[in-house]
């Protein structure tokens, strides 16, 4: 007898369809931005987009895999230094050298995970921080890359950088401004690629496994999920992207020092703030969070240490009163999912 009932699975929502159209329009606008935006706006956008990439990586770790790392600055720093090493030692062009940053960070992530995965919860957090400090102190001994005081990218490397010439002639810009356009486009591509990659992962079979491990590790193992392997994959992938982002950030500044490249406040502290106020465990959260963070930074730029105090107070308030962040509040009120991952079972009669 034929079964009159059949099933299908749906993840799309009406809001997500509209969001996809709006997002496509925004992406087109973002790509065309250098045609009509000034240098300072592009530089601001560079900061926003690179922080967004770091936030998406940290959110993948903490929000989906339950790996609360306080040592992501290790991967920003090693990525940046690997990029510098590629340029200074081997004469690479800085643009492809950014990818070297990703490779270096992924390689560093392997021993880091080996040790840190033996620790759980708060111990894992502290362990990653300690490892990041060890890496910072080691890199500071690297005399040919400037030791503790750091170094700059050679002038000829920045002036002959790939793509700068065509961009300069396309927009009729000087080289320095064209480098900002290039950095902006690379940051845009990295941020969009990271969001697309995270979303694709969460929608995949592996994403389901990741959520199961996050919710209940023992039960996940009991239904055949390799919890440890999921953690490895996520940790190394997040490190690689963080390393690429580090390389990109320091390509733009063209000057590096261990204290800046391995700064826990800049590359992990602010990133945690962004994810927590935006909404941990969602893709929308970090996007919202980075906008709020940047606005606060601008608003409070003149107040020195008050700035950090106020960030801290806001962070604590959000954790206490809206633990799922601003996006959590919006989602609860409206039910909107811009990046839906829920597999809904639909019964067709």
């Amino acid at each position: 007898m034929a079964n009159p009932v059949s099933y299908r699975v749906e993840t799309r929502t009406r809001a997500s369809g509209r969001a996809a159209i709006a997002a496509a329009a925004l992406v087109v606008l973002a790509i065309g931005l250098p045609a009509f935006a000034g240098r300072s706006l592009l530089q601001d956008m560079f900061v926003i987009l690179s922080m967004l990439t770091l936030a998406q990586c940290w959110n993948l770790l903490a929000g989906y895999a339950g790996l609360v790392s306080v040592g992501q600055q290790a991967f920003v720093g090693i990525g940046a230094y690997a990029m510098f090493a590629g340029v200074i030692f081997w004469g690479w062009d800085p643009v492809p050298a950014i990818l070297l940053g990703g490779v270096a960070a992924a390689v560093l992530a392997i021993p880091t995970a080996f040790f840190a995965f033996r620790l759980a919860g708060a111990y894992f957090a502290i362990g990653t921080w300690v490892i990041a400090e060890v890496v910072r102190l080691s890199v500071a001994q690297w005399k040919s890359l400037g030791g503790g005081t750091g170094t700059s990218l050679p002038r000829e490397a920045t002036s002959d950088m790939m793509f700068v010439e065509p961009i300069a002639s396309l927009f009729g810009l000087r080289d320095a401004a064209a480098r900002d356009v290039l950095a902006y486009w690379l940051a845009l591509a990295l941020a969009l690629g990271t969001i697309a990659g995270v979303y694709a992962l969460l929608r995949s079979r592996q994403g389901l496994a990741l959520a199961a491990v996050r919710d209940n590790r023992v039960a996940a193992r009991a239904v055949g999920v390799d919890a440890q392997r999921m953690n490895w994959v996520v940790f190394v992938a997040a490190a690689a992207i963080t390393g690429i982002c580090g390389g990109l950030i320091y390509m733009q500044t063209a000057r590096i020092s261990p204290d800046a490249a391995f700064a826990v406040l800049d590359w992990t502290g602010y990133v945690i703030f962004i994810v927590v106020i935006g909404g941990i465990g969602t893709i929308e959260g970090p996007i919202l969070g980075v906008i709020v963070f940047f606005a606060l930074q601008r608003l409070l730029a003149d107040y020195g240490s008050w700035y950090l105090l106020i960030l801290g107070v806001i962070g604590i308030a959000v954790m206490l009163f809206a633990p799922r962040g601003l996006w959590g509040l919006i989602h609860d009120r409206t039910g909107i999912d811009l990046f839906p991952i829920r597999r809904r079972l639909i019964i067709k009669k």
């Binding site: 199961a212 209940n216 829920r342 597999r343």
Partner: peptide, 21 residues
């Protein structure tokens, strides 16, 4: 020991997909 944030259906989906490969 449910996967609390997943739906009931998703709980079975992950078990089916990974338990049976």
């Amino acid at each position: 020991q449910p996967f609390g944030k997943l739906t009931v259906f998703e709980n079975l989906l992950v078990a089916g997909a990974f338990g049976q490969g």
